[in-house]
Design a protein around this nucleic acid. Structure first.
Length: 1030
RNA sequence: GCGCGAGUGGCGGAAUUGGCAGACGCGCAGGAUUUAGGUUCCUGUGGGGUAACCCGUCCCGGUUCGACUCCGGGCUCGCGCACCA
């Protein structure tokens, strides 16, 4: 704290200094940077584009977590500038979003008004930190000048299709499959007959060899359907989170684990609705492949891979042979089979066929039943009359649960038998078809073949419903050991099968598989059950082969095939290959790839977002607005409420835009059209904002090619890990589309990615473990904590900052008390940037003290003039060495984003210089330059007081002399048997031999070695000597 | 349940990636300056022991001349995904 009762002329007056230099930077436009082609722009300098994830302008303003990343990039940018780079470092606001709309519904204040005042507050806060943003490039996503271009990108997608057979090789020689192309090119190829059309209005890529329909033969409507089916932005009916009370669909992350809305806890239903979709799945492979080469934290890359969730396996068709009045007979099946072998695997499953996706086609012989997801369309058709009531009730109940509800893993497996049977295509066995909610409609085909012996979910289900379990993969011996020793056997299962005598049943099962001559006895079965693994080979193996259900877990690993006819003995990999080839040959299966990633549901029934720039005709025609009609502005409205609806899944969404009557209706070429009533999700604006910064004021385009070529890709991108998947995946997807269409020159937008950790806060727990709000905690003299009312002792723990715990720290207050430079230094000194760590206001004065000490190194506090210790004399060796060490360490640490240790080095310098009577100018000046990225205001002020007139912002970073940056004498530890016994001073460049000699000559070591024989000496240059002796 | 990350003094954290554990800061203790408090400056500060020494990086085991670091097993906390066939 500044000392009020002894204010002197030369005090470190941070408030005045910070105001002065922020003013200076702003009026001199110090940090404005041009683009190639602009007057005065030096395009020969290296470029450095440093990007912060822009904030949502919330009413609460910045909290202390935001500036963590911003301080880091600010330091990095200032350093890069000093190293001679053109630095692009912009800031803006992700300004569309639900909170402003909810506030508008509650108060009637238009979202744009709230948003603008929030932005003003946030800008004020950002400016008080003294960040080196180029404020001329500030953007916000919610103004037409911005979102018009967001709409333009949407139209690019609407007017494109994905040509999967377009191969190309990039500059690095990598082959990429597939490319987005203008839909007009598809139309041309269709007209020319290079591409045909199948019955489902899909494309036929080799019309020469495949039966197909011709473009000329299609009517207007069909042609439209063919093209609409291919667009990257398209309308489809998909299951979404529909919240009738809020009148909108919700993103998965807006739905709680209880299947209710995050906001206000309304019920949410999974139901199919017609929605705008973006075809991100077409990019799944490229997004997956290209993540590998990115300079991103490995966990983030892994999260992206998991989210995409690629798996390989096979699609297999199971014919239905009984169930429902029109179910095929076995005779039909024989004919069908023949037709299949001749005609091949159809693109879409035929009637009365269940298509499944499996990653383990090698377990087909173990498929003993099938399961359909409750939403599966075949259920209605195949359920037999006697099962209908139960099945219908089950399906209905499942529809009322959210997906998350259904997937709660504590839950027992449930399901119903449909009464129908399918034929296992590999062994001709009839297997029952069940419906169960452990199968999801949203993944694969919504139907599975169940292999209970080798899939844990099927295993549980089969045990619960007494379905047969057939082993087809031989586990390794280790698995049996593990099962027997760790888990034991399933007594309950055996009892439920009428075999309460466990050893007896094990013996019986084993004998059934191994034969009567194998000598399996009740004694060795009992020994095995008791954990004696010597009986694994003789008893456990055959028992498993006969009934895997006696174990508590399914064997899901790989191994040799068994019970699989002519495939027996093959390894899993070989089996997969052979069976897939056989399935293809027979026309009943094919190799297949699946992704967890779904196409992106892109519409929201909300007001405060980008309107979707298309028009709907009465006959289902959907036409894009012309580029010249953009931006399509939001209509002015006063009431933003969704139409109130009952908590009823059957109600349809009525977006607020539906009430903007004049806006909705459009006439074009004498035909009446209706505007789209949806808006885009909040992600849209942030998918390309890094491009808008390049030419933020350009009207005719979102960005310019010259600037794009120079600045892109982003060199360093810093933000919270909460955007690890969605934002970064969506932005990469948009970027790749733009790349395919030739609008950007790189296939990836972001280079090095750094995730800042969360700033947490301390919280206090009482004996019962209940959290106590921070205002009720006091510290005792011993540094312990207690409840201020009850005096009960409390323990300090780390928790999230929350209003509830009253432990939120406001940056405005800290800056008012200590200044921005102290705040910046403190946040950077707290720990590694990626780590989450607790804010501790008690530590802040330490950094304030540091700045005061630096201040006094230069300024005489009494007079306000330069300190008399500042001299023009030659520096001594100590001063010179600490200076060059500091320059080296700080520079390296900034490049590695290790600001905490950089500041530790600054402390070291100050600790060394403080006691010196003389502080040579040639040491102090470079030091002031070195601290300037961290504490720019103080640095500029000191620099000026040292007699300079130019801002430090453009001052070159000092060079360090490698000779001076290291000590010439070093302390070397001497160990005997790994324990330090002595330390000796040696020249830093002493070699191993010299180290050894010096160590053995040391008197203390000599004494220790008396009576011992030296066996070996290990010497490490500049570090230690270890003597092995006994 | 699966995956990822972390666990080091009273607290935040450091350790050139296998080489002196605890840099730097906070806090605490002592001293100097001061009428006093504060500020500033200096000294000390992992634990035990009078000491020589011993013990210490979540726990158990291993590899190594040498392990916070590598390997095997376990515990705790945080994050992500969550019946993905």
């Amino acid at each position: 704290m500044n000392d009020d009762n002894r204010k002197t002329a030369g005090q470190y007056d941070f408030a005045a200094i910070e105001a002065k230099w922020q003013n200076y930077w702003e009026s001199n436009r110090t940090f404005a940077v041009g683009n190639p082609g602009d007057p005065g722009f030096d395009g020969t300098k290296p470029k450095c584009y440093v990007l912060d994830m822009f904030p949502y302008p919330s009413g609460a303003g910045l909290h202390v977590g935001h500036p963590l990343g911003y301080c880091a990039t600010d330091i990095y940018c200032r350093y890069q500038r000093m190293k001679g780079a053109n630095v692009l470092h912009p800031m803006g606001y992700d300004a569309f979003g639900l909170p402003a709309e909810q506030y508008a519904i509650a108060t009637g204040v238009h979202p744009s008004v709230t948003t603008q005042s929030n932005i003003e507050n946030m800008r004020r806060q950002l400016k008080m930190f003294g960040f080196c943003y180029d404020w001329d490039r500030e953007i916000q996503t919610c103004v037409p000048e911005y979102y018009g271009h967001t709409q333009w990108i949407f139209l690019q997608m609407f007017n494109s299709w994905y040509d999967e057979s377009f191969d190309r090789t990039d500059e690095q020689g990598r082959l990429t499959h597939g490319k987005a192309r203008p839909i007009s090119e598809l139309q041309l190829m269709l007209e020319l007959g290079q591409i045909g059309v199948d019955e489902g209005c899909g494309l036929v890529r080799d019309p020469g060899n495949t039966p197909h329909r011709k473009w000329e033969g299609l009517d207007e409507r069909q042609r439209r359907q063919v093209l609409d089916n291919q667009r990257l932005a398209f309308i489809d009916e998909v299951p979404v989170n529909w919240c009738p009370a809020l009148g909108t669909v919700l993103a998965n992350e807006e739905v709680t684990n209880e299947g209710r809305s995050e906001r206000d806890n309304h019920p949410v239903f999974r139901r199919p609705l017609r929605q705008w979709m973006l075809r991100i799945t077409k990019y799944a492979d490229r997004l997956l492949e290209e993540v590998n080469a990115l300079d991103w934290p490995e966990p983030i890359k892994l999260m992206q891979r998991n989210w995409i969730g690629k798996s390989t396996g096979a699609d297999v068709d199971f014919p239905i042979v009984s169930g429902g009045p029109e179910a095929p007979t076995m005779d039909d099946e024989t004919r069908r089979r023949k037709g299949r072998a001749d005609g091949g695997f159809p693109a879409m499953p035929k009637e009365y066929t269940i298509r499944v996706y499996t990653t383990r086609p090698d377990t087909l012989f173990g498929a003993t039943y099938m399961v359909l997801a409750p939403e599966h369309p075949l259920i209605e058709k195949i359920t037999t009359p006697d099962r209908r009531i139960a099945v219908t009730a089950y399906v209905k109940a499942a529809a009322h649960k959210s997906e998350l509800d259904r997937t709660a893993d504590t839950k027992e497996k449930t399901g119903e038998f449909t009464g129908a049977y399918a034929l296992n295509p590999v062994n001709g066995k009839e297997i029952p078809i069940w419906v169960a909610d452990y199968v999801m409609m949203g993944y694969g085909t919504g139907a599975i073949m169940a292999v209970p012996a080798h899939d844990s979910r099927d295993f549980e289900f089969a045990k619960a419903f007494a379905l047969p379990i057939v082993a087809v993969v031989q586990p390794d011996e280790g698995w049996f050991h593990d099962q027997i020793q760790r888990s034991g056997l399933d007594t309950a299962y055996c009892a439920s099968r009428g075999k309460p005598d466990l050893p007896g049943y094990v013996m019986e099962s084993a004998t059934a598989a191994a034969g009567t001559l194998s000598g399996i006895t009740a004694q060795n079965a009992t020994a095995l059950i008791d954990g004696d693994t010597s009986w694994v080979r003789q008893v456990a193996f055959p028992a498993f082969a006969s009934d895997p259900g006696i174990f508590l877990e399914a064997f899901t690993g790989e191994g040799a095939a068994m019970n699989s006819g002519r495939f027996d003995g093959l390894t899993t990999t070989e089996f997969k290959e052979k069976i897939t080839a056989w399935l293809v040959e027979q026309g009943i299966g094919r190799a297949a790839v699946n992704y967890k990633l779904h196409d992106w549901v892109f519409s929201r029934q909300k007001y405060w977002g980008e309107p979707i720039p298309v028009l709907h005709g009465e006959d289902g025609e959907c036409i894009a607005l012309d580029e010249s009609e953009l931006p399509l502005e939001l209509p002015p409205m006063e009431d933003f409420k969704p139409t109130p609806a009952a908590d009823d899944a059957a109600t349809l969404p009525e977006p607020p835009l539906g009430r903007a009557k004049e806006w909705i209706t459009v006439e074009r070429n004498g035909k009446k059209y209706r505007r789209d009533l949806n808006t885009m999700p909040q992600w849209a604006g942030s998918c390309w904002y890094y491009l808008r910064y390049l030419n933020p004021k350009e009207k005719s385009a979102g960005w310019g090619m010259m600037a794009e070529k120079y600045w892109m890709p982003v060199d360093v991108y810093v933000g919270g890990a909460e955007h690890a998947v969605l934002h970064l995946l969506y932005a990469r997807f948009w970027h790749k589309v733009l790349y395919d269409l030739g609008h950007v020159s790189t296939s990836e937008p972001f280079g090095r990615l750094i995730n800042q950790g969360m700033i947490q806060s301390f919280a206090y727990k009482d004996k019962r473990g209940a959290l106590v709000t921070a205002d009720l905690v006091e510290e005792t003299d011993e540094g312990a904590f207690r409840h201020s009312r009850t005096q009960e002792p409390l323990t300090q723990v780390v928790a999230k900052m929350s209003k509830m715990l009253k432990n939120v720290v406001n940056p405005d207050e800290i800056i008012a008390q200590y200044g921005a430079d102290t705040f910046r230094m403190y946040e950077m000194f707290m720990g590694p940037i990626e780590a989450s760590k607790p804010w501790n206001t008690r530590d802040v004065p330490g950094l304030f003290k540091l700045l005061n000490r630096i201040w006094r190194l230069v300024v005489d506090v009494e007079s306000g003039g330069l300190s008399p210790a500042i001299v023009d004399a030659e520096p001594g060796d100590d001063a010179l060495r600490i200076l060059h060490k500091t320059i080296k360490k700080v520079g390296e640490d900034i490049e590695a984003f290790k600001f905490n240790t950089a500041i530790a080095a600054i402390f070291d310098f100050v600790n060394t210089l403080t006691p010196m009577k003389q502080r040579p100018r040639s040491v102090i000046e470079p030091f002031v330059v070195v601290i300037s990225p961290f504490a720019p205001h103080v640095a500029e002020e000191l620099w000026e007081r040292l007699g300079h007139t130019e801002s430090l912002a453009d001052h070159p970073w000092p060079q360090h002399d490698p000779q001076l940056a290291r000590d010439d004498q070093v302390e070397v530890a001497v160990q005997i048997m790994g324990k330090v016994k002595s330390r000796i001073m040696l020249p830093a460049d002493a070699d191993e031999k010299q180290l050894e000699q010096a160590a053995l000559a040391d008197p203390r070591i000599k004494r220790e070695l008396e009576g011992k024989t030296v066996r070996k000496v290990i010497a490490v240059k500049g570090r230690l000597v270890n003597i092995v002796a006994n």
